[in-house]
């Protein structure tokens, strides 16, 4: 199953290395990692999308991350009210005939064309994982030359609905 885990980390040199090393060593399967600054200087936030076999494994992911000295806080936010977003850039082959069609396809996704060449266009789309997958599927028949994706980042919604089965692992259990 897929889980979204976030970690707040001290922005020390090597911290990314520590964490990716940990994932490899413990055979945790990561789909994506994003890292970026937060509202506090010196503190970064990482968002991981991980594939785990069961609850025990995601618990291990959280606990092992928590053990790192430079990691301040870890949350499995999959079951909370969250917003996830990813940005993707797609270079799609075009002919004069298909160009208009492509425009129509991407419009409902609120994607934009950010570069145009003789035989291709580059499209930028922002959305959650499923939305981006769906758009890629629709464009595939036209010939996708290149895809660049940022990986998902996530944030908790301002107001949380009550989630009874929320998965948080405190170190105190």
């Amino acid at each position: 199953m897929k889980r979204i885990v976030t970690a707040t980390v001290l922005n020390q040199s090597g911290v990314l290395n520590r964490i990716t090393g940990l994932f490899t060593r413990r055979q945790f399967n990561i789909e994506s990692i994003t890292v970026g600054a937060t509202e506090t200087e010196g503190i970064s936030k990482m968002t991981f999308v991980v594939h785990v076999e069961d609850d025990r494994m995601v618990e291990q992911v959280v606990k092992q991350l928590n053990k790192q000295i430079d990691v301040l806080k870890v949350n499995d936010i999959t079951d909370q009210a969250i917003v996830t977003r990813e940005l993707a850039l797609l270079k799609v082959m075009t002919t004069p005939q298909t160009r208009a069609e492509i425009n129509v396809i991407i419009e409902p996704f609120r994607a934009t064309i950010i570069d145009v060449a003789k035989d291709s266009v580059t499209i930028q789309v922002v959305g959650n994982f499923e939305k981006i997958e769906a758009m890629i599927e629709l464009l595939r028949p036209y010939g996708i030359k290149e895809v660049a994706r940022t990986g998902q980042t996530a944030i908790k919604r301002g107001s949380q609905r009550l989630v009874s089965e929320s998965k948080t692992f405190s170190i105190l259990n």
Binding site: Q60, K63, N66, L172, N173
Partner: peptide
């Protein structure tokens, strides 16, 4: 003392960190 050891290999019903 190490929470990561609890439940790592053996399912644990009473975890005491």
């Amino acid at each position: 003392i190490d929470p990561a050891e609890i439940g790592k290999n053996v399912e644990t019903h009473i975890p005491i960190v």
